[in-house]
């Protein structure tokens, strides 16, 4: 039998740079209240969200990703041409094929890297990071660009008082590259498909084309509603706080990091109440800096962790070399947690 030469990768991988893009338009709760019967106080007390960013028609999934990627590449100090793979996690790019990753790869001037999209909801960044680490250690790419990007305003039912205020738009990107020391811990990840109804899209796309149009949901004006993200709030809250705290602890244990060793905690920015309760359940020490970007960015799904990471570093609340626990969780249900060294 012929002998196949194996690929040769780096000993370990690390995040080398991070970048973010937030759309120009800042949307306060007052704008949300134009379509739902609620109050600023109610929204803040249930979610901690005061403002979010909504993308303009020009701030496309591609455009936001290119902006965030440019910053991440500059932060990493590499040339775009060195990127061997581009992984994009999104649920709000509305053209099924080709993958938006290919267009982004082209626009950032990275030549002809491998490029593909993944669908892992709010856990997408952790899924992408795990793939990137594997590719670098295995040797199929030296540098991998991982992007989380969403235009969730396009998938928001503005007449649903339980979710209208939650979602925002934006892009976050990291460059992952080779390292002589381990700077990304083992990933604790998985899925719970038996809970797939807990967070979901209201109507599948093909219902508009081949389904019974008379069964599609209507808005208050009698117009057919575009699909939106809906969720069972209490069930999601319980799962996120109590089950995900266990996963976060497993990720710390797997990395051999105690809560005392930890500098930063960057959970998916779903809701401030989830973040607060997770911190309490995990019994994180006072010195751990907790990302609370949700207050001004809303829930941006796959983009939330890199966006929060970028803001903590930019504002000096966290610094390069800090040890951070990250955990993403969402529709699927899916989850991914790991410990990383901040770039």
């Amino acid at each position: 039998m012929a002998k196949i030469k194996p690929s040769k990768g780096a000993p370990y991988a690390r995040i080398l740079g991070v970048g973010g893009y937030r759309p120009t338009r800042v949307v306060p709760n007052e704008v949300i209240l134009e379509k739902i019967d609620s109050s600023d106080e109610w929204i803040r007390s249930r979610s901690g969200i005061a403002t979010r960013h909504w993308a303009s028609p020009e701030e496309t999934v591609t455009a936001m990703s290119v902006e965030a990627s440019g910053k991440a590449i500059a932060d990493a100090g590499i040339d775009p041409g060195q990127i061997g793979a581009v992984i994009v996690s999104t649920v709000s790019h509305f053209k099924q094929t080709p993958a938006v990753a290919t267009e982004i790869a082209d626009k950032i001037g990275s030549g002809k890297p491998a490029a593909f999209d993944i669908s892992a909801g709010c856990a997408g960044f952790g899924y992408g990071l795990t793939l990137a680490k594997g590719m670098i250690v295995e040797g199929s790419a030296e540098y991998v660009l991982v992007i989380g990007v969403e235009r969730l305003s396009d998938l928001t039912d503005l007449e649903d008082r339980a979710t209208a205020f939650l979602f925002g738009d934006g892009a976050g990107a990291v460059v992952v590259g080779p390292s002589d020391e381990p700077h990304i811990g083992p990933t604790v990840w998985g899925s719970e498909g038996d809970k797939s109804e807990t967070i979901k899209q209201t109507v599948p796309w093909n219902e508009f084309h081949v389904g019974d149009v008379s069964k599609l949901p209507l808005d208050t004006q009698g117009e057919i509603k575009f699909p939106a993200i809906t969720q069972e709030g209490q069930a999601v809250f319980r799962w996120a706080v109590f089950e995900m705290a266990k996963v976060a602890q497993q990720a710390l244990d797997a990395a051999g990091i105690s809560a005392e060793d930890l500098d930063v905690f960057i959970p998916h920015q779903a809701n401030m109440r989830i973040i607060d309760s997770m911190v309490k359940t995990l019994k994180l020490p006072e010195h751990v800096t907790v990302a609370r970007d949700v207050e001004t960015t809303g829930n941006t799904s796959a983009a939330s962790i890199p966006l929060a990471m970028e803001r903590l570093l930019a504002t000096g609340k966290a610094k390069s070399g800090d040890t951070a626990l990250i955990i993403g969780f969402g529709a699927g249900l899916v989850f991914a947690a790991t410990v990383v060294t901040l770039p």
Binding site: R46, E232, G233, Q234, A235, F237, R238, V241
Partner: peptide
């Protein structure tokens, strides 16, 4: 006690009284 705090009350009660209270 709002709907989210209620979930915390329920989980704490589950632990304290060794009972399962489904969503």
């Amino acid at each position: 006690v709002d709907s989210l705090s209620m979930v915390e009350v329920v989980v704490a009660a589950e632990e304290r009284f060794d009972v399962k209270i489904p969503d």
